[in-house]
Each structure stands twice: as structure tokens, then as C-alpha cells.
Design a protein around this nucleic acid. Sequence first.
DNA 1: TGTGAAAAATCTGTAAT
DNA 2: ATTACAGATTTTTCACA
Lengths: 154, 154
Amino acid sequence: MLDDEVDRAIVRALREDGRTTLAQLSEVSGLSLSAVQVRVRKLEARGVITGYRAVVDPESVGLPLTAFVEVTPFDQSQEDDSPERLRDLPGIEACYSVAGNANYMLLVRVASPRALEELLGQIRRAASVYTRSTVVLQTYFEGRPVAAPGDPDK
Amino acid sequence: MLDDEVDRAIVRALREDGRTTLAQLSEVSGLSLSAVQVRVRKLEARGVITGYRAVVDPESVGLPLTAFVEVTPFDQSQEDDSPERLRDLPGIEACYSVAGNANYMLLVRVASPRALEELLGQIRRAASVYTRSTVVLQTYFEGRPVAAPGDPDK
DNA sequence: TGTGAAAAATCTGTAAT
DNA sequence: ATTACAGATTTTTCACA
């Protein structure tokens, strides 16, 4: 949870630009530089900020094909540890359990249709699941910072 | 596109930690600090690295409910500018056009089921579309750096 | 918590090789 | 690309209200 308006301002700024300096955070929040530093440390320690990442264009790194993969175990009577089994497969960027026909939704990035075929095979074998894939044709926007409730979107 | 193994090492490090210093990048890549600086600048200029973001726990910022929303226009004979119409709605983190029954797939973050209902109404009205939502029950992992082909995953 | 100032580390630009 | 150097910026640390 966020404490106050200052935390919200800090988080908003760092979501937009993870390299925002303490001086800049000091300006937008109104606090002194030192105080801002303490706030940031606490946000990190509390798990509000879990890390910092460079955003990389998937195409540029040889992963032009994105797909959603719905995953459903063959045998629903068995204990299901699919996420653990899928964790180490290459190309899986995200894994969610979902309320719907499928048990899980994956977001995968691969180099080609052939590589997707390969990965789907690995997924099916590793977790004993059916897969249903939805190929992404175009990414309009992605990872856009979502305003928290009560947070004025600028 | 990435030039060589050095670029790959730099990108990999910055995906893991967007705050990796040039000195650290110099170590992992084997290049001198100055050379690394030039590389990073070029990667940014070429659009390989498109930005830096703090990763924030959605729950902590008051957005505990995540959902996938498939979007399909009522009238497929009309020109479709859904992405533009949806761009400014609050809570939509990503928008993809997809190959499947639906035209688009959205990833949305909201504060509550009630807020999801509200957002779905906004989506339908703004873009004249049907929606089909899949609620996320649990996020196992998300935004995990995916190794590029030929990139040894550590 | 917060502030302010000094110290340490990092980044940036330039120049020579 | 590498090394070296200097100036600016940022981060860190510390003393103190």
C-alpha cells in the first residue's frame, strides 16, 4: 500500500521513467532529496517497487512473434504444478492462472512460427497440457503505466 | 537488430536491472567504460532500448484485479480504429491486435470487480465493441526477460 | 520523518593513441 | 576501441532538528 500523495508521485514518476533522479523526484514530490531517497528505499523494501527494467523492443532482439497461450491440463484430477514446470522454458514472459476455460494464460515471445511450434510442444510435454494460442499481429501499446485509483492521470 | 555478443550482454543486463551502471556493463561485456557508453546510446537511438521503467506491484498501488479483455467490433464492415479510441481509457495497460475470433486483446488493471464492470462499459461505448473478459486469479510471473535466440540463458 | 551539507560514486564529454 | 582526464551530476552518508 502507498502511504500518501508523496509516495504516489514518486511511484508515478518511476513508472514513467525508472531512471528519474532523486533530484527530480524531490521536485515532483516537494520533499527534500534525502527524504525522497528514504521513501524510495522503503518502497523497494516494502515490495511496492519490485525492480527496474530496461524496456526492449522484442523485434530488435530477434523475438518478433508474440502470442497468448491458454493452457489446460489433460488430467484435471491430478495436482497441478504447471507454473513451476513452465518457469524454466525459454520464451515465456508471463504466466497467470485465470478464471475461464483454461487454467493458465501465458504470454510468449519467439523468433518465428517454427519456434512457436517448438515452444508449444515443450509446454505440452513439460506440463501435460492442452494449449490454445492466439497470435499477436500488432502491438499498439504495452506496459503502459496505469494510473492508480485517486491518482490524477496527467 | 543487435550487432554482436556485446550488445546482447548489455541488453540482457539492462533488462534484468535497468539501473545497471556503465561500470558494471563494462565488466559483463568486457568492453571499456567509454565504449559501453557509446553502445548504450546507440541501442537507445536505434530503438532497441525504448525506455526504463520501475516495476511496481499492482496490488500495492490499488489495482489488485487484472484481466484480459478480448475486443470485437459490432460492425466489422466499418473502419476500425479501436486502439485509438481505447488509448486514453484508464486501466488499459496493453493493447494488441490478434489473430483469432477477437480483433484485439487488452490487458487491464483495475481496483475491483465493480471497476472492471465500469471499464468494460467504457470500452464498449468508446469503441462500439463486444468484450469477452478473462479474469486473472494469480500472477506467477510477469515481464520476465526472455532470452533472445542464440543468447545463453544464464 | 524530515533537512542540509559533505563525501563518494557515476556519468558525460573530450582528447590522444 | 582503449585509456586518461576533467567537470557536472547523482548517490550516499552523516549530523542534526
